[in-house]
Design a protein around this nucleic acid. Structure first.
Lengths: 242, 242
DNA sequence: TATGATATAAATGAATACATTATTTATTTA
DNA sequence: TAAATAAATAATGTATTCATTTATATCATA
């Protein structure tokens, strides 16, 4: 049997393969459909100028992903998500990333991943030091943040954490993206600084093999963005998290 | 927007709909394919006496579920899982059910769900009191156990917990089922008694709104089955857990 | 007017046919 | 013999077609 690292990727590079599925998923994520819209094979194939066959497969896949749900005999409709649902999704993400941090603290960091975390910290520190909240800073912070979180999840050695989170990611955000397509929350400078500090703390906990602390701090770190979201009404998940 | 309780089910009753997908998933779960088998649309449609169209859709869905992975231009193969992977899956399940228990302790039990938990506890107590480990007892315990766990997850109000776990459930077990199709571990009487006691403790923690304790005890409860598994080599997940 | 049966339309499940792409095998050439 | 190229085979992507199921509209009847 294979080790975790040899687990086949869930979504390997697909050349032209399921592009219709991706197109539809993007359309949904970008709010091109109303909540009340009923998506049928025939209707969508007409709309996209394709035959029903590829559309049919795409709809089935999206239903399996949980993006759509099926009305037997009447097509599909968007799965709808409330603010509560979004908050629930974040709670799951928080505890799963907490698990990743906990486990990584237990098994220890290898050099490659330590370097990745340090690189991320350097990047976020640069942004915070600079102290100017322009597009460049926000973009740089977002990239560094993504590196931080993905490094911890993949270095944890538990492939199911990423599995679950990447599935979770499409769901409540599609709907939110539909509601506020352009209202991606711009974080405040203060928030970036706090996030950066939390990244440092989490990294230290992992380095010192303080698993419980790593778990708690990561969970807090992600939950924090939820409070922020509720206070300021932005969408922290749609922009690469934190 | 909808409340969590109105979230459309992920897998509503499907009459004859995606039965080919289900058939294939079952075949995979029952070990009808070798790790080395390459599953192609044409090959499977010949084998099943169907056209490629439904088989094709089923393969795409199973790939989206993570049961299969795609070799571009060469069909699909089983996603392989090691004992490590199985243990990782259990860690995810443990922490997610812990989250469910924690949240349920926070929001409190309503009467209906309290009754369900009490019913489950009565059933497991009966089995433990009886003290005889025959098929009837094992079956009764498994049912009660499933009621216990599903009640907590659904009463938690977080639909994503069940979402993640139900997806997780198909993955590493398919492979294990293939290896030991008949070797479903029969729990010992001692183990059933411990499980029952843990159920009582978890229920008490929820009733007393001791969220942290509910989380920790549930996580321990599920993790315990992993230790058991490692000690005795059974497959606790294939049989409805614990 | 309300209700139920029937007819019509719409949508889906599945098969076949065809085009395109990728992979394997065979063959040629240096 | 090794590398490169070309033919073949296999696999997939898409379209078209037909049959069946499901929903909706219409009409007759109470």
């Amino acid at each position: 049997m294979s080790d975790s690292r040899t687990l086949p990727e869930l979504n390997p590079d697909q050349k032209s393969d399921d592009r219709i599925t991706d197109i539809l998923r993007d359309m949904i994520a970008n709010g091109r459909f109303e909540e009340s819209d009923k998506l049928t094979e025939s209707g969508l194939s007409r709309m996209l100028g394709l035959s029903r066959t590829p559309v049919r497969a795409a709809l089935k896949v999206l239903a399996a992903e949980g993006v759509l749900s099926k009305l037997p005999g009447r097509g599909y409709h968007l799965r709808k998500f409330s603010e509560h649902d979004r908050s629930h999704a974040l709670a799951v993400r928080a505890i799963l990333e907490g698990l990743a941090a906990e486990r990584l603290a237990t098994i220890g960091l290898d050099d490659q991943n330590r370097q990745r975390l340090e690189k991320s910290l350097t990047m976020t520190e640069t942004v915070v030091r600079r102290g100017i909240l322009d597009d460049e800073s926000v973009e740089a912070f977002a990239v560094a943040n993504m590196i931080f979180h993905r490094t911890i999840m993949s270095a944890s050695g538990n492939p199911f954490i990423l599995d679950c989170i990447s599935r979770l990611a499409v769901l409540p955000n599609a709907q939110l993206g539909a509601v506020h397509p352009l209202a991606v929350a711009y974080p405040s400078m203060e928030r970036l600084a706090v996030s950066h500090q939390q990244h440092i703390i989490i990294t230290q906990a992992i380095e010192k093999k303080e698993a419980g602390r790593a778990f708690a701090m990561m969970r807090e770190h992600i939950g924090y963005s939820d409070e922020y979201h509720q206070l300021f009404g932005g969408n922290q998940l749609a922009a690469p998290p934190h």
